[in-house]
């Protein structure tokens, strides 16, 4: 509509109709985009920081070829439990910091789903708020079931 006065200035709560709705959808896209970007940047910094620290603590990684086999073999222990992670972080272990960064990366899409629920509520879109809540529930279930099933 060309005769709408001052588009985009009306507060979302007072406005209704297709334009206000488009504005709210746009805001949702920006929030989700920011969230993904922050998740990506933070996890990248932590992952790379941990990797650099590994090399600082173990200068042998730069020169020794047999070290690689040890690092990438299936039997090499590395932090993958909560207690192992916390212990490693306390000791400023590079691999524990990297693992934390990877966990942040893994958590980002789940957080995106969680944040979408209130965003749909804000758009007064009940159907999609429910759809997204179901998706989040299924995600949490699959994690819990997967852990139990090993």
């Amino acid at each position: 509509m060309s005769d709408a006065g001052a588009p985009g200035l009306a507060p979302a709560s007072a406005a209704s109709g297709p334009e206000a709705n488009a504005e709210r959808v746009r805001r949702m896209e920006l929030v989700i985009s920011y969230l993904l970007r922050i998740g990506v940047v933070v996890s990248l910094v932590v992952v790379v920081g941990g990797l650099v620290l590994s090399f600082v603590h173990h200068p042998v990684y730069v020169s020794s070829r047999p070290e690689l086999h040890r690092l990438t073999s299936r039997d090499t222990p590395f932090p993958h439990t909560l207690s192992g992670l916390v212990g490693g972080l306390r000791g400023l272990d590079g691999r524990a910091i990297t693992a934390l960064g990877l966990l942040l990366l893994i958590a980002t899409p789940v957080l995106r789903v969680a944040v979408s629920i209130p965003l749909f509520v804000y758009q007064r879109d009940r159907t999609f708020a429910i759809v997204t809540a179901v998706v989040l529930t299924v995600l949490i279930c699959s994690f819990v079931l997967g852990r139990a099933g090993g």
């Binding site: 941990g50 990438t72 590395f78 691999r95 693992a99 997967g146």
Partner: peptide, 15 residues
């Protein structure tokens, strides 16, 4: 999450 707990995500490879 499951792969991580199982120890399939080696930080040195995944980083």
């Amino acid at each position: 999450g499951v792969y991580f707990v199982r120890g399939d995500i080696n930080p040195f490879i995944a980083a």
